[in-house]
Simulated assay, not measured.
Amino acid sequence: MSQPNEELARQLHQAWQAAWKREHGGERRMKPVKQDQQWIRRNGTNEVDIAATDFRDLPTDWQAENLASAKAAIDIVQQLKREGKSLNDEATLEEASARLHVNWLSRNGSWASAIQRRPYNRLPEPEKEKDRVVIRLAIQLVG
């Protein structure tokens, strides 16, 4: 079995793909591949359709953010457990999601939209739900 971070990263990508398909059907989601030269050589292109590619087959460029989110979420959930917090209540879910959002901003704040740069408690519900999904999956995996 894969490590928890890798398993959660795979689940996060699958959850994103499912949401993409609900919103966009079979539309492709092409992204540039900039760092993974081995992937580019192997595939003969510097673009990847992230909507149609399994996590394990993504270039490392596109695996990296899911792995970082997975590690952060698992660390947050484990910290909350050490603090004696119940992982089954909404207040803890919101606290964990807020912590995850701060972590995400530390990695992505330079390019995030103005809405995404807001503190968690001022985010629109769809943005909050993105953080909650990650935390819920982390709780299922390691909680």
Rank of each mutant, 00 (worst) to 15 (best):
E83M: 08
R29W: 06
A98P: 02
D131P: 00
V48D: 11
K130A: 06
E65H: 11
G109H: 09
G143I: 15
L105P: 12
G109S: 13
D131W: 00
W16Y: 08
P119W: 13
Q11K: 07
V33P: 02
L123P: 05
P119D: 05
G143C: 09
S110T: 15
V48R: 03
L141K: 11
E47D: 04
P126V: 12
I115K: 12
R42Y: 03
V33S: 03
V48K: 07
Q17E: 10
A72F: 12
T53V: 07
D54S: 11
E7C: 01
K71T: 12
S113P: 08
A64T: 13
D61E: 09
T60S: 11
G84N: 10
A9H: 05
I74T: 02
N88D: 14
S2A: 09
N5F: 01
D36N: 08
E65F: 10
E95C: 05
E47Y: 11
V48M: 12
L105C: 09
Q140Y: 00
W20F: 12
R118I: 06
T45E: 01
R22S: 14
R99T: 03
V134L: 13
N5L: 01
L93A: 04
R42D: 02
Q116H: 04
S86V: 07
D61V: 00
D49N: 04
A68L: 15
L12A: 03
Q116G: 07
S86M: 12
N121D: 15
V142G: 09
R136Y: 04
L93Q: 07
A72D: 14
V134W: 09
Q14W: 07
S106F: 00
M30K: 04
H13A: 14
S110A: 15
L58I: 07
L67P: 01
A72P: 04
I40K: 06
W111C: 10
A96F: 01
S69T: 12
I76C: 05
D61M: 03
D54N: 14
K81E: 09
P4N: 08
A52M: 04
R117N: 13
N66H: 15
E47F: 11
S110W: 15
Q79A: 14
K31M: 15
Q38K: 15
R41S: 13
G84K: 10
T53M: 03
G25L: 02
V134I: 15
V142M: 11
